[in-house]
């Protein structure tokens, strides 16, 4: 695998909500098969970064490059761009009126126009992969939080994205269900999926992350590999944050 390919490059990204300057000159790159973990206090802008990466929010300035292509929201069909960027949400956002399989095959059939029988075959495979073969025809309301999140992961994977974004995928879960979701994510990472993860699970960040970005008040003030950043943070504010969460 060519680990030298850049999947995402962000340069001088700025984002405002009204007068509120939420992201300040964000620079970051994500290489193929890399797991980049974003950490930082509540309100520091972690979700907003992810949402800019798949254009659920539009940045006010700066560039976002996906697979070597500068994405301009004005000229690009953002729906096509989003097909390549999977997203997993804190609150799952499964489609409650569709079964597990229905959730997974919806976009491949309706967006990618994949024939139904093939989409079903691929979907079942993915559901198996996240360990839910016995839940294929079940509605989301009958699933635990951890199971819901694994379905959400399978649903995003069904579009065969180049990169997966995770926004606090375990924050809404009961503690005993966190492990199964993290295990699924770890497995994905081991298979070479490129991932950007916002999480408060420092154990996961340390074990699975290749690069940690510490975000403070809309700025990335420290970055490095997990060992450097967790064991020897350079910035006082990073140390402070870590002492609270570790």
């Amino acid at each position: 695998m060519d680990d030298k390919t850049e999947i995402i490059r962000v340069e001088k990204l700025n984002k405002y909500f009204g007068d509120l300057h939420v992201l300040k000159d964000i620079d970051m790159t994500v290489m193929k098969s890399e797991v980049v973990v974003l950490i930082g206090a509540s309100g520091s802008g972690k979700s907003t970064i992810l949402r800019c990466l798949n254009f659920l929010e539009k940045n006010d300035s700066g560039t976002i490059v996906l697979d070597g292509e500068i994405i301009d929201p004005k000229t690009h069909n953002l729906n096509r761009v989003r097909e390549r960027v999977g997203m997993v949400f804190q609150h799952f956002n499964l489609f409650p009126h569709k079964t597990v399989l229905g959730n997974v095959i919806e976009a491949p059939i309706k967006v990618k126009k994949i024939p139904k029988d093939q989409a079903v075959r691929d979907g079942i495979e993915l559901i198996k992969k996240v360990g839910l073969s016995d839940k294929i025809n079940v509605y989301p309301s009958k699933l635990s939080g951890g199971q819901k999140q694994r379905v959400a992961i399978a649903r995003a994977l069904a579009m065969k994205p180049d990169v997966m974004l995770f926004d606090e995928p375990t924050s809404a879960l009961d503690p005993e269900l966190v492990g199964e979701v993290l295990a699924t994510m770890k497995q994905l990472a081991e298979e070479g999926m490129t991932m950007v993860v916002v999480t408060h699970e420092m154990g996961f960040a340390r074990e699975v992350g290749n690069k940690i970005l510490y975000l403070h008040d809309g700025k990335i003030i420290e970055r490095g590999n997990p060992k450097e950043l967790f064991e020897n943070p350079q910035e006082e504010r990073t140390r402070e944050f870590l002492s609270k969460v570790l």
Partner: peptide
């Protein structure tokens, strides 16, 4: 209908119209 439904549709590459027709309206009608 929760805003997350629209966002989930978008994040899968579904257009606003497709999300409305396939995701939002069926739930709203129910």
């Amino acid at each position: 209908i929760d805003k997350g439904q629209q966002e989930a549709g978008s994040s899968l590459g579904m257009s606003a119209a497709l999300t409305m027709r396939r995701i939002i309206l069926p739930q709203a009608f129910r």
